[in-house]
Structure formats: structure tokens, C-alpha cells
Design a protein around this nucleic acid. Sequence first.
DNA 1: ATCTATGCCTGGTGGC
DNA 2: TGCCACCAGGCATAGA
Length: 272
Amino acid sequence: MPEIAEVRTVKKVLKEKLVGRTIINISYRYDGIVKSNKEEFKKVLIGKTITDVDNFGKWLFIKLGEYTILSHLRMEGKYYIKPTCEEYEKHEHIIFNLDDGTNLRYKDVRKFGVMYLVKTKDIYSTAEIVKLGLEPDDNKLTNEYIYNKIHSSNKPIKELLLDQTIINGFGNIYVDEVLFASFILPTRLGNTISLAECDRIKKEGSRIIKKATSCGGTTIRSYTSSLGVEGTYQKYLKVHTKQNQKCPTCGELIKKIRVGGRGTYYCPKCQK
DNA sequence: ATCTATGCCTGGTGGC
DNA sequence: TGCCACCAGGCATAGA
């Protein structure tokens, strides 16, 4: 499941490989991913040259001058660059033919991902983007910012950190890791979290996302390789996917519970 | 306003 | 081996 560290890795590789390439054709093998008008999406983008690739949280921006593709990978979305002649794999839904004889292919086994066509100048005012909070390692993210967003909530802190309108970019893996590093139980309600604890969330969140990004993200379960990039942060995971294994700090067995409908891993001794 | 349930999806897994 | 119910979960939306 791509979170901000994985999306940044995808952005970096796409930017290196795609800037300067012109789209000469687009074909749909399954078109449900494109949520804007599907014919307009093709008509506008064919003939355009990719000028930049960026991201904000988990959203990718593939910029083509005046227009931008907003792309969210959700659970299993991946991009591949392959020669045009290579046979299609199952679940490769959208094929962008490029002017150098390659394809940009969007693959998504579960079809949860979405793409929108927007004007580049409107990116940050679109409904999907305008509501998002600060990224975990944004310099403007302070303990007061987090505290103000959560101190009157009676939702578990795990759910609050997954809320992209509060902090933009955490997913299930990194929230478990941040809460472990911050010594906070995932079930604690927002209104019980102190300003000092918000400071730990901010510092550990920033540290973990920076480290994970530098590792190219985490490769577990469905989030495997994309664009030939294998993330290596999984070797630094302390609790996520570690149920019944010893806590690396105290030796207690890691527990798995469900919080807000999501599999949640924590150390019952280290986290209070 | 706020909470809960459901839908979107397919592949992997465990039980029989 | 096959069949099947169930689970994985980011996010939007409908309903309570």
C-alpha cells in the first residue's frame, strides 16, 4: 500500500524517466480508473509533453504544461515503463504510448486507484487536494498544529493520524511505526494526547518518513516493486506485521488488534 | 454535526 | 484438487 514514502519514490523515478516525453496515444484496457470524462482525458493529453512530476502526500501530479494528471495509487496502483512491443500483463489498465517507443502503464489489481484531469493552475484548489493537511515532514508541521487538530476528538489516535486532512501522507504501516516510536497506544483517544506527545509524533513521524523515503519505501504484501524499485524500509519495521514476535525494545510480544477497521500492531508494554 | 455502514475490487488463505 | 467464505484496506458517500 503506497504511502508518502513510496509515492515520493515513484515520483522521483517517473520524473527522471518521463520529463520531455510526449504522449502519442492513450488506450484503456479498463477505464474505470479515470474519473474525469474519459474521452476528454485522451483528447486533451494526446500530443502533450510531460513537463514535471510531483506529489503532495499520496497524490501524484504528472504535469503536462497547462494540464496535470492527478493520480492516486490507493492500495495497489503501480506505474511501469515498458517497450511498446511488450505483451500486456493482466491488470495493466491504462497505456500511455510515448514518443520514444515506450509505454507508461498503470497497473492496479484491485482497481481502487483514481486519475483526474485538471488544469495545472487549479491543482491546489481541486476538491481532492484542497482539504489535505500538512505532510509529516513539512517544516510548518508543529506540535501545536497536531494538538489543535486532535485535542477535542474522541477518536483513537491511530484513526486521527490516518486522516489525510490532519496529516497528509501517513498510511497504515507508518502510523503503527510512528506510534510505537512515540510510546503511544494506538487506541488512545485524541483528547487524551498531550502537547508533549504531539511533539513526539511530529519528530518521530518526520524522522520515519524521511528515513523510509531514503530507503525507497517499504516492500511488503501487495506493495511490491513499481518501476523496478524495491523499497528496503521493511527491514527497519519495529511492529507492523510483527505480531507474536518480540518487541525490539523490551522483548514483550507484539500484539495485533483492529482499530478503526484496520489491522494495528503495537507493543503493549512500551506504548502507554 | 458526527458516527456507522457500505461500495469499490481481486487475490490469497484457510477450512472442508 | 476444488470450492467457498472471508479478509486485506484508502477513501468517498449514503444513511442513521
